[in-house]
Design a binder for these strands. Structure first.
Lengths: 232, 232
DNA sequence: CCTAAACGATGTAATTTTGCATCTTTTTTG
DNA sequence: CAAAAAAGATGCAAAATTACATCGTTTAGG
């Protein structure tokens, strides 16, 4: 009996790592409200989903596809991270600023749901369970992002690039994939120069870690790659 | 008339950059509840406020002093940022994980308020205005942190170190201050080696940017410093 | 109060990363 | 379809960063 209470408590603070879980707290009527105020939009690979400076009138949910989140550091673009499907795009920032200070570009053909921010605000105010789940989710997300950015930035280029390649493999759920970004964009993600990315990819190829032709990548030695990302 | 509505709307999404603003949404009774469930604790400079791996039973509010927030990257410590007084310590992560995955150390004599997480959870559920303000605040905070970390990591050491020194000056609201951290810790914050920090500080001294003796720092040329942090 | 340990400074060598020049390949566009 | 533009490779020199060794100074603990 005591144990069941303990488990219940445990569950209360457990991770909310999927955006969809938040919606479970909504009543049928509330779900309907969200649906009604939402619009689905498709983006081609390379299209801009949100642009820095625009007014935040929607929360953006990436239903299908892949996107990246960019910010500007003293005028130069820096990529904060990849947004996998079934997650919010920049939700961590959207509530704070009326004018968005980040951009997002589709890296694959993507389908996006625009949810009216006013409706979401109303639901947060009226449905406490939803609000709490959202807070937990945002908390989890921030945690992920902070760890991720910091991990990239405290590594040498071999380590950073290994992490990035493994990240892509995770997104595509396969060790064979097509890079959705150019070398320069990879450089922006990990914070190194374009040339360093190119050179290191060549080195990985020479060392038999990967096979590569253009943007086609095959990870040959996942263990070694993991090892490099840990130690680098 | 139309304009006043516009202003009202504008205000709804305006920034919540102070933790205290969140509490304004609480009723007197709710405030009382928070107070009752809270404990104030003092920490000496260098003392650990929270330790990675511990169970999150409280949200930590830094009432007075200065702290830093650390995470671990593949076993090595990395500092995510400085926590100025009158802000939450790690609130962005605390809701997500039962077991904390960050640590915090007091950099100055500090006074901390521990707020029971269950009470806060209850208030989020029952008070929609509070929940929304908290979401906005967390959103703003995450935004700050992400920009800040990324800014450090996309700069050369001159740039990073200038940012850090200006950060300290902002914390102490003066261009003359005593560094609350050792060189190695500064290195952990900006993601460079201890030696690089030491060498660059010496260079700044030689170049007449700063005066320095031990941990006493005086910024002599703030404009140039700003310039270096922008361009580096 | 003294000793050992940690911190900080400096110089140098080794390593890493960048920037440039050049060339090939791929993509875009008229 | 061809020309132009952008992306990707490669090698090399320059610049930035780290790592190591050493030494003076400060701090912490017995």
């Amino acid at each position: 009996m005591a144990e069941s209470i303990y488990l219940k408590k445990e569950n209360k603070i457990s991770e909310i790592n999927s955006a969809e879980q938040c919606l479970l707290a909504l009543s049928d009527q509330e779900k309907e409200e969200v649906l009604k105020s939402s619009v689905e939009v498709d983006f081609q690979k390379g299209e801009t989903i949100i642009k820095k400076g625009f007014v935040a009138s929607s929360i953006i949910y990436l239903k299908q596809g892949l996107a990246k989140l960019d910010i500007e550091i003293d005028g130069k673009p820096a990529t904060v991270g990849l947004i996998p499907e079934k997650s919010f795009v920049g939700i961590i920032c959207t509530f704070a600023n009326r004018n968005l200070n980040f951009s997002s570009v589709a890296l694959e053909k993507s389908r996006v749901v625009l949810i009216d921010i006013q409706v979401l605000e109303k639901l947060i105010r009226q449905n406490g369970d939803f609000a709490f789940l959202l807070i937990k989710h945002m908390s989890w997300l921030t945690n992920q992002i902070v760890h991720h950015i910091t991990r990239y930035s405290h590594k040498n280029i071999d380590g950073s690039l290994s992490i990035l390649l493994l990240d892509f493999a995770a997104v595509y759920k396969s060790d064979i994939f097509t890079l959705p970004v150019k070398r320069k964009e990879m450089a922006n993600i990990i914070g190194y120069s374009k040339e360093s990315v190119i050179n290191t990819l060549s080195k990985f190829k020479r060392d038999g870690l990967i096979e590569m032709a253009g943007r086609e990548v095959k990870i040959l030695n996942r263990e070694m790659m993991q090892h490099i990302s840990d130690l680098g």
